[in-house]
Design a protein around this nucleic acid. Structure first.
Length: 554
RNA sequence: GCGCCCAUAGCUCAGCUGGAUAGAGCAUCAGACUACGAAUCUGAGGGCCGCAGGUUCGAAUCCUGCUGGGCGCGCCA
């Protein structure tokens, strides 16, 4: 509907320009919006006021010129009014709305999708936690935001590739190996001291116990220099396996787990740095190599190879991002914790130095999560091993509630996650509100069937019977769904889908309480069943994108 | 000190890349089941959109300054 109105306006502007009453060029972007106040019609546009500036005319006058030139061939409009400072208010014929449900019926589980992305290839990287311990609640938000953003992009026609970057080449890994070795020795009766930087979580002790059970004490016979790498590999492998399993249970499946070590194979990082040095993006200062990120607006240059010869994390990251684009992705999206925001300028600089557009890399920052229980903060610290794991959260509150809760805020806003509230199966927990609407419609359709009704086909349904304000509001809301997905994809804001779902569910609950879907009037029942099933379809499609189940009974 | 993010109802937050009278949930108060599911609905109260300027037909939204909070500023990851 919106699109149809935009086209009507475009044509009328063209006509006006042709007749010389409006100056060229026509605006690139015409806005038509749903109105809040029924007195302002169903849709409204502000083009006249925008045109007025360049036409040097009174906005209301421009609005008049436009409205007189609108050719409504399909008979969508009841009337067009000029209001306020120069708004064009469109009043849609009551019968015009119902026809919008045709596309829901026709597209079914594809309703809402589009080809906005035109098959462009996008790589999205998220979670990417070091395999030094199990995922905790802080990682969970990034996981859901990444997963749902990917789902949204897929729905609007991008070819999306989901990736988890494993930092398995640095110092942290060494510490992990040492930590495991210490626990292993401890289990064999040695007294051990834990140096700074080692991990003391209970999970290390469990790994050590498993290793001991499997292999006995024979590892202590190894050569000392081989010992730590061996324990590192064992620990990282086992922990990563656990991470993958936790993510799978949480509904996050990746196309690839990309190992940092791969970047160092065949001296890949070294080669890249030499290339950049030839192009003068990298320079030497003694043994240290610096990346000239200031050339792209960073506040200071950054070290890529330390004085001791070790490459920094940043060096590997440059190589990783080059690798992304070399694999043919037109754009890359990184989902980071907000505490990494200072890293954006240098990463952006690196992408540009590699010869790619600045816009090719988009970074979404996800604010930290405050974990609460009954309003009181739960203390967490990875090093000391005190934390609530992702797995524990999912086990306690369930996957649906956990995912939905992480999508109830804008990503860059802090989020309080209260375990007790998320667990409650009550009105404090919005996920049930939406799921209940779904279950309720399923129930209506079941009972309709029992009473001998079937949902009519679009051709056989008399949708002109849907005249109530609540019915028209529902139709409007349904037609908004594709636009919501488009907007969520454009801005990378998955929370928009959640808020939309709440709105749609609210409209249906309200409608349901006020009106009977199933009645003695066969034609009316048919029309209302058709509407209800349209709502059901949208609820299902949207919940699927959120990775939340749509139960038929609760 | 510099940089990024945030500030909207008592609380938690939306506000669709500038639109008309700023919305929702929770909490409070008052109501609705002999019903297609009450995990629902209806109504009421509640606001200097942090403060002060600016841009324009029009600002919660854009710009500047200030106040208050979060986070970052390493040859750590």
């Amino acid at each position: 509907m919106k699109q149809a109105l935009v086209q009507l306006l475009e044509k009328s502007i063209q006509t006006g320009i042709g007749q010389g009453v409006l100056p060229p060029p026509s605006p690139t972007h015409i806005e038509v919006e749903l109105t809040k106040d029924p007195g302002h019609g169903d849709y409204a546009s502000n083009v006249a006021m925008i045109l007025a500036a360049q036409a040097k005319k009174n906005p209301r006058e421009v609005a008049k010129i436009l409205s007189e030139r609108i050719e409504d061939r399909d008979g969508l409009l009841d009337r067009v009014e000029i209001a306020g400072p120069g708004f064009l208010n469109f009043f849609i014929r009551k019968t015009g709305f119902a026809s919008l449900l045709e596309s829901v019926d026709r597209q079914g589980d594809r309703y809402g999708s589009s080809d906005q992305g035109q098959g462009r290839r996008v790589q999205i990287e998220y979670v990417s936690a070091n395999p030094t311990g199990p995922l905790h609640i802080g990682h969970a938000r990034g996981a859901v935001v990444g997963d749902v953003t990917a789902n949204i992009l897929e729905a609007v026609g991008y070819r999306v590739f989901r990736e988890y970057y494993i930092n398995d080449a640095g110092n942290q890994m060494n510490n992990l190996g040492k930590s495991l070795l210490l626990r292993y020795r401890e289990l064999l009766g040695e007294k051990v001291e834990f140096p700074e930087g080692c991990y003391r979580g209970e999970y290390i002790r469990e790994l050590a116990a498993e290793l001991l059970k499997r292999d006995g004490d024979r590892h202590l016979q190894e050569k000392p220099e081989a010992l730590v790498p061996l324990f590192t590999d064992y620990a990282a492998g086992a922990i990563l396996e656990g991470i993958r399993e936790d993510l799978r249970i949480f509904g996050c499946v990746f196309d690839r787990y990309f190992s940092e070590r791969e970047l160092y194979r065949d001296d890949g990082v070294g080669k890249l740095l030499r290339e950049l040095e030839e192009k003068d993006f990298v320079y030497r200062e003694g043994e240290t190599l610096w990346f000239r990120t200031t050339a792209f607006g960073d506040e200071k240059d950054r070290v890529v190879v330390r004085q001791n010869g070790d490459p920094t994390y940043f060096a590997a990251d440059i190589a990783y991002h080059q690798n992304k684009f070399q694999r043919g992705f037109e754009s890359a999206i990184d989902i980071w914790g907000a505490d990494h925001h200072g890293y954006i300028p240098r990463m952006s600089a690196a992408v540009q130095a590699l010869g790619y557009e600045k816009e090719a890399l988009k970074v979404v920052l996800v604010q930290l999560v405050n974990l609460l229980r009954e309003g009181k903060p739960v203390a967490m610290s990875t090093r000391s091993g005190e934390f609530v794991t992702l797995r524990e959260v999912v086990d306690e509150v369930g996957r649906d509630a956990a995912r939905y809760n992480f999508l109830m805020r804008r990503s860059d806003s802090h989020l309080d996650f209260d375990l007790e509230v998320a667990k409650k199966q009550s009105n404090e927990n919005p996920v049930y509100y939406v799921q209940y609407a779904h279950a309720r419609i399923c129930s209506i359709l079941r009972i309709a069937t029992e009473r001998g009704y079937t949902v009519p086909t679009f051709d056989r349904a008399d949708l002109s019977l849907l005249q109530l304000p609540e019915e028209i509001d529902l139709v409007k809301a349904i037609t908004r769904f594709p636009e919501v997905l488009e907007g969520a994809a454009r801005t990378l804001e998955p929370h928009r889908v959640t808020f939309y779902l709440n709105d749609l569910a609210a409209l249906f609950h309200s409608y349901y309480n006020k009106n009977k879907v199933i009645s003695e009037d066969g034609a009316l029942t048919g029309a209302r069943l058709f509407l209800s099933r349209s709502v059901l379809t949208v609820l299902q499609n949207a919940l699927k994108i959120l990775g939340v189940s749509a139960p038929e009974k609760m």
